[in-house]
Every structure is written in structure tokens, then in C-alpha cells.
Amino acid sequence: MSRKFAFRLQELHALHANLRGVFILMLLLTVALLAYMGVRLWAIPDPVRPVELASLLSFAVACVVLCVGQLQCLRRMRRDTREKIEQMTFADELTGLHNYRYLEQRLGEELQRATRHGYPVSVIYLDCDGFKLVNDTYGHEAGNTVLRRVSQTLRASMRAEDFIGRLGGDEFLAVLPQTDSSGALIAAERLRTRLRALDLTAPGGERMDFVGFSMGVASFPAHATRREELVRAADAAMYRAKKAGGDRVCL
């Protein structure tokens, strides 16, 4: 867990705790004020009591409405906090894609569904060729820009039912439900073509044409039946693509 993530998590928990404390304080104050008004009500003469009773009831209704509003606000904040924590837990900070933790969980769930319903699932393991040269030549900010551009293209190129994430460094993994190896090969080649069409320009204006994309494809259940084995099979196929010269797709 990064320091920034831990700090944001502490902030969200502190905000939720503060709101809960405010609600409890308002509730206690309301009870105390109602008790005080009740004591005053019984201490005044009977002719004036109906007027005081009406005032007390109006005040009580206002307090209840206020407390209910605060309770609803607290519930919304709790839901928003949970969603933000989930987003922070499963999102890659640099690219906005899913991270490895999310991919691991979702891929396991998808393979369970595929086993029950009998359909194939394919994964595409992608590595950016020449990425180290980008960092060494133009700096890490240029490398981060490349990763963001690649991520945007990957996200825009996937189907609604597919999901893709960053494993770390310059490696990405796409999961294609209900897709066999032949369909995944077509999808991977289409991705590679779109990525190669990107205008990747260095800070000085030089085109970084040396950046390529090696991809490995593996399918369930043809190449593996377990999540870890499926990812390893796609990783091995990606390295075969690199050894063959890079910037290509291998099964």
C-alpha cells in the first residue's frame, strides 16, 4: 500500500468518524433540550401550557427532521466513502486502469462463471517494447506519458464486457470473456495496430517510433484451467513474441 493511498484512506475514515460524531452530538443535544423543555412545561401554569406545548412539539419536530437529515447525510457519506476506498483499492494510480488486485479477483470470478456455463475466456498479456529506452533517454515523465496514452487506447478499444488493467511497469493484462484463442488473436492484433498508430512524441518533439508492443494470448480451458496458470501461459507467449523480434502477437 503506497503512502498516498494510506493517507487518503486515513482522511476518508477520519471524515466518516467526524460526521458520526456530529450526528451523535446533535442527537444528545436534542434529547437534552427536549428534557429541559419538558421540565419547563410542567412548571408553568395550566392556562399557558397549551401554547408551550405547541412550541415544544414544533421544536421536537424540527429536531427530528434535522437528525433524520443528518442520518441520511451520514449514510450517503458512508456509501461514498466505501466507493472511494474501493476505487482506490482497485485502480492504478498512474493510468486509471484497474490494478493487479482487481484483475486477479475479477479473472478468478470470470473463470468460475466460465466453468459453470461452459464458455471460453482469453487473456492478452501486453508489454511495451523499448519502454526502458524511453525512461533512460527522455526521463520518467515521458515514460508516464507513454503509459497514459497506451492506457487510453486500450480502454477505448475493448468491448463493454472486457476488462483491462495494468500489472505494473509497462505490462498490461486484458481479459476477454466468451472469447476463444482465435478471437483473442484477432483482438490482440487489432490492439497492436491501434497502439502502433499512436503519435508518441518525446518532450523535444522527436517521434518515439522505436516503441512497440509484444502480446501473448492464452485461453481457458485450451491452455490452462486455473487463473495463475492462464496468466503464466499468456506471459510465456508474450516472451516468445519478444524473442521473435518484438512488436507482434504470439499464442
Rank of each mutant, 00 (worst) to 15 (best):
H223I: 01
E110R: 00
V39P: 11
I44N: 05
T153A: 12
R75Q: 09
F23L: 15
R3A: 14
T95Y: 12
A244T: 06
D127Q: 01
Y100C: 09
R240M: 11
I186Y: 08
A197W: 09
A43I: 05
A6Y: 13
Q112M: 04
T95S: 05
T201N: 05
E93I: 09
A91T: 15
R40Q: 15
R78I: 04
G205F: 03
E11G: 08
F5I: 15
D170T: 03
E161A: 08
M208C: 05
Y119W: 10
F210N: 08
A43D: 15
D209T: 12
S151L: 07
V48K: 10
E83R: 12
G69L: 02
Y102E: 06
D162F: 03
A54S: 14
G212M: 07
G130Q: 01
L185I: 09
G143V: 02
L200Q: 08
N144D: 15
A35Q: 11
Y119C: 09
S182F: 06
L53V: 11
R196D: 15
G165R: 03
C73T: 13
K4E: 15
V231P: 01
A241G: 04
S151W: 02
A222T: 09
D170V: 04
V65M: 11
F163T: 03
G183A: 06
L154P: 03
F23M: 12
M208Q: 07
T153K: 06
F213A: 04
L103A: 07
M238P: 03
R166V: 01
H16S: 14
D162W: 01
G108R: 06
Q70H: 13
L53Y: 09
L74W: 10
